[in-house]
Amino acid sequence: MMKNIVLCGIGGQGTVLASKLIASAAMSKNIPVMSAETIGMAQRGGNVFSNLRMGEGVHSPMIAKGQADIILGFEPGETVRMLPFLKADGVVVTNKRAIMPTTATLSGFHYDADEMIDYLKTRVNKLHVIDGDEALKELGSSKVLNIVLLGAALRTKAIELSEEDIICSMEKMLKPEFMELNKKAIYYTK
């Protein structure tokens, strides 16, 4: 089955690693994968995305509008930005905490996380809002937001991979000293 996954957030939030972990897990199950991500100037505090496509019959790494099975949003405004890519019955897993862009701080542009979440509630049936701040505080690390969100995404069953599959790829890609923390992070949400 073809699966299209969109990951989005702000440069530096760890979307790329999350996308690599999914890809590597799919590869080890012999599922063909293609992906694409923002590289270059936009990484300097700009909005970034990863497209990940798994399964047979995929020719390009880009996901068309209305074709994503799941959006994994690291920041609520960015989740809203990518919403046009979601399928009508698609799943959204999003972090709750908004990140204020410097430009908004300067111009006094009003930007409110709750407004974003409210909008998502009206548009998405399968919405999962994750309190990333709370999770990071409890886990005692500011570095594992990506893994917490990825874990929540796996539990929605919108991606045909298990926590164990991802842990296997983590073992290939992460330093052993970070494994314990990341394992905790992946099972953090219920």
């Binding site: 440069g11 300097r44 505090g45 862009p101 430009t103």
Partner: peptide
């Protein structure tokens, strides 16, 4: 077919790249 997931989204902040 028009996709329906996103209609009248709230205004979003622009995030131009900035010096770190």
């Amino acid at each position: 077919k028009e996709d329906k997931a996103s209609v009248n989204p709230p205004e979003l902040p622009v995030r131009p790249p900035v010096l770190c």
